[in-house]
Design a protein around this nucleic acid. Structure first.
Lengths: 354, 354
DNA sequence: CACTCGTGGAGAAACGTATCTCCACAGGCT
DNA sequence: AGCCTGTGGAGATACGTTTCTCCACGAGTG
């Protein structure tokens, strides 16, 4: 009984009579044998591990502001990875370098990488596939996935206009991540187009306390808006509280929409219209793209097995990395309607791809 | 220049002149050398990876109900692990067995394991340290950490009594996990002690929709309570909405407390008193206990290095695994006070240890 | 001088798997 | 009889570390 025989029997490879196979398996079972993951990884070059990198504010691992989004996204990503035999390792971008270097990763998902992220660059250079959630600034990545933030914001602004808003305000962040930037630009562009003076307040989105202050500031302005879109999850409750302080009725005096994945807004008084970024879809897509890249291209030897796959997975030379835009969903509730709320509607601009 | 020299130079071991060391490092840097994590793991038997097992309802990886709790706990756990050079792998208990087997784990954190969890048993038997969040039922674990749920519930009931409650109701779950069970038992015990007829409704905690229905049921009862404690995070908003439907004013007609980690309850109308399980502390403690176990005892050879550590980390023979009870925190807000709210207070029964 | 001792570094084994190569053998064919 | 072919399985190597053992050499010591 040689090592080869056992290996082949357990892995279903080689040419062995079924009787030998089952005998080997039976003995292995009886002995409680478990193959060594480390040895397998060393030999095959595959660890079955995917890094999930989250940007950090301060020393805490996860982002605060997009937390519900992140949680849902990570959940879906974990699920999708598991379904294909991979597991996720949570790795904040600020991790000590020795931790990063000590883990054999087959690939990495990176959430909203800042421009010129050195971590992403190093990973990419060392041949590890990287797929980003959020269109990357200047980092080279294998692929990226993002919502169509511009379409989402324009859809909301149109929705508020239709509901009778004359001056729409924005509650936005001070950071320079893609989400904040694209959304704010879309708002400013829309204002320019329809000839409205922009009315917005910014605050550091990672600081929950200053969100309430910013909401207050926005409603205290002399040019007080009659409708507000808040880019971050807690904005809804903060704006609602601020409106109460100023004696403004929602939706009669103030229309409200915020971006959130939380369903608490279904039972606030009044229920608040929210924009969902559909993080589950994003997480699933990101992971599947990454695993396609991992299994499609053996980056170590340069052998290109990717020709077996659809062309969209082939990273063509030095062109821009392939990106996918995912749709958002506007959940219309009482806070953005002067009349009785209708049902859930989709954003006005469905994206080209899935 | 031998392999030994390079290894020693990079790892700061052996006896080498500083000049050789720095020369080796410089060359390694120039060549972009990265040590192979897989080979290191194979050789040393340490992967630097800790499993984070979450129970699953249905096919989704994480629990819904304790979600904010879990998210905070996982965040703290990740942070604590990272600080000690470990990374966390998220592994739902329902994962395909081949995924579990394919990962080299130094230890595992398991959240609220059900009685007789086969997964935990197998891990424990194969020598992997297991620390559980939530007092384990019949699983053998290295150590466990939990809140003092009984003290927490009794503290809340006393608090509500002091605020004038005559009949306190409970909104609880149908599942048999430790948290639900201990909390409900504490409630029933308290009722028996003070001579109040128990008034409670149960629902499957993992189903967000049925929570609202149960809240409604509780307030629709002929023996309607004048105070309610809800065991799960969404109960606060659900109960508030139900109270509105029945024309009950909070806190005048109904006192409200729920267990939640969310700060939305600070800005609801009225703000709701919440019990925080302090998941950050739990996560940190669990991870530190686990890593102590990993680094203290080399389970492979049976060599006991644990004598260098405080006695509480030594697993004494076949005795019960060492457990640690952590305090909770009651955040008193308007919903549980007939008068104006005081400040934050601690639970009445501070635990013995940290 | 013969010896110990400390220093700097080389050699080799081992971790456990996957896989490539090769061998023995039996049966059918020319 | 000699040859080819397919079957079952053994041997050996490589993956990249870490670490144990050992060697060479020069300086100090009796």
């Amino acid at each position: 009984m040689s090592i080869t025989t056992v290996s082949d029997a357990l892995n279903g490879k080689g040419r062995l009579p079924d009787e030998t196979r089952s005998r080997v398996r039976e003995v292995a079972e009886r002995l409680g044998y478990r193959p060594s993951a480390a040895a397998r990884t060393l030999r095959t070059g595959r660890s079955g591990l995917i890094g999930l990198t989250v940007t950090t504010y301060g020393e805490e691992p996860f982002t605060f502001t997009e937390f519900a989004y992140f949680a849902e996204m990570a959940r879906a990503a974990t699920s999708a990875a598991l379904g294909r035999g991979y597991a996720l390792v949570v790795l904040p971008a600020s991790s000590r370098h020795d931790v990063w270097g000590n883990i054999a990763l087959d690939g990495t998902v990176v959430i909203d990488p800042p421009d010129q992220d050195p971590l992403v660059s190093e990973l990419y250079r060392s041949g590890v596939p990287v797929v980003s959630d959020g269109k990357p600034g200047n980092c080279p990545v294998t692929a990226w996935v993002d919502n169509d933030h511009e379409a989402a914001v324009l859809g909301i602004l149109d929705h508020l206009s239709e509901a009778g808003a004359r001056r729409i305000g924005l509650l936005t962040g001070t950071s320079t991540d893609t989400y904040t930037r694209l959304s704010t630009e879309a708002y400013l562009g829309w204002c320019a187009k329809v000839g409205q003076e922009p009315v917005y307040e910014t605050y550091p989105a990672h600081d929950p306390a200053s969100g309430a202050v910013a909401a207050d500031r926005l409603l205290a302005r002399p040019d007080r808006p009659d409708a507000v879109y808040g880019l971050f999850d807690p904005n809804g409750t903060d704006l609602l509280a601020a409106a109460r302080r100023y004696g403004l009725r929602v939706p009669d005096d103030l229309l409200l929409v915020c971006c959130s994945e939380s369903d608490v807004y279904a039972s606030t008084e009044p229920p608040i219209t929210t924009l969902s970024l559909k993080p589950r879809r994003i997480g699933t897509t990101v992971v599947n793209l990454l695993i396609d890249a991992i299994e499609g291209v053996d980056s170590g030897t340069g052998v290109d097995i990717a020709r077996l796959f659809p062309p969209r997975f082939r990273t063509a030379g030095t062109g821009p990395p392939p990106g996918t835009l995912m749709p958002t969903e506007l959940i219309v509730r009482a806070s953005s309607q002067r009349r009785s709320p209708r049902t859930t509607v989709s954003p006005p601009r469905p994206p080209g791809e899935v």
